[in-house]
Design a protein around this nucleic acid. Structure first.
Lengths: 140, 140
DNA sequence: ATCATACTCTACTGTTTTGGTAGGATATGC
DNA sequence: GCATATCCTACCAAAACAGTAGAGTATGAT
């Protein structure tokens, strides 16, 4: 399951997508509209900025906004930043690979199954982008 | 990611599948061969037994063994017993559904995406069974 | 310049989950 | 009735999760 943090991240991103083209949005506005604890949200947005998903501007008229066009950022990328691995086993993770103890990957039934799951999951999460989060502006 | 516990569970089940037809296997044998902490493994096997995946026999000649034919138990079932939900969001889980706060499911982009992920994942995990874990007896 | 605005950053804290351990109770077979 | 093995409850330490605190820094307007 996605962590609470990741779910907050997606809620915040949804607002930022809806307001794409409207310039920076205040953290406090996002927090209020999406009911996310303010200070926690600060950390989350900062993390997304450091990862290159968001941009920010300080001072009056400042706030957060999406860095590239929403269609350029995949859902998979966001999950990896906030929650880490998407795969169900370390030994089948593409970005967070770790050898599993006591399992010969060439001859491990579970490995094969989880590789299939990973491919199926990524097939979706890599093809969907922030654009797909847009609500059509009902939630502004 | 699957928990350590779930990975132990699958390692244990792999041995039990390989030894299917050979009668009960001692917890201590599984623990030793698969390098799983004995007392932890006890809990795991007990849980799998209560869920109907395994059977056991006490006393001399006793041990654990698989309840139904390995092809009858899906990988999904095992994951649900040991780790709980498979879905990435509570609001798209079939067995552990929970409404998500502040999200209108009919109009939530993330909901739709995660529903697709769930279907893709279950398509695999529900169609693979314990039988697919068998190593061909190289690991006895 | 200086002041208000708003993000930036480090560190800290309480709670829950994870990953086990301990030890006795209970059932079975000989 | 004894040895064998699972059953069961409770406990514990460490890590992850979820959030908080508070001071620092950059920006824009006056």
């Amino acid at each position: 399951m996605l962590s609470n943090k990741a779910q907050y991240a997606f809620r915040a991103l949804t607002l930022l997508v809806d307001k794409y083209e409207e310039g920076p949005v205040l953290i406090s506005e996002i927090a209020k509209k999406k009911r996310i604890p303010l200070k926690f949200l600060e950390n989350i947005l900062l993390e997304l900025k450091r990862a290159g998903i968001l941009q920010s501007k300080k001072g009056k008229g400042g706030g957060y906004f999406i860095n590239q066009h929403p269609s350029k950022t995949t859902i998979a990328a966001v999950v990896r930043i906030v929650d880490g691995p998407i795969a169900m086993l370390p030994c089948v993770s593409l970005y967070f690979y770790q050898k599993c103890k006591n399992c010969d990957e060439k001859n491990c039934g579970l490995h094969d199954i989880m590789e299939n799951v990973r491919d199926a999951t990524l097939g979706i999460l890599e093809s969907r982008t922030l654009e797909d989060l847009a609500t059509g502006r009902e939630n502004l």
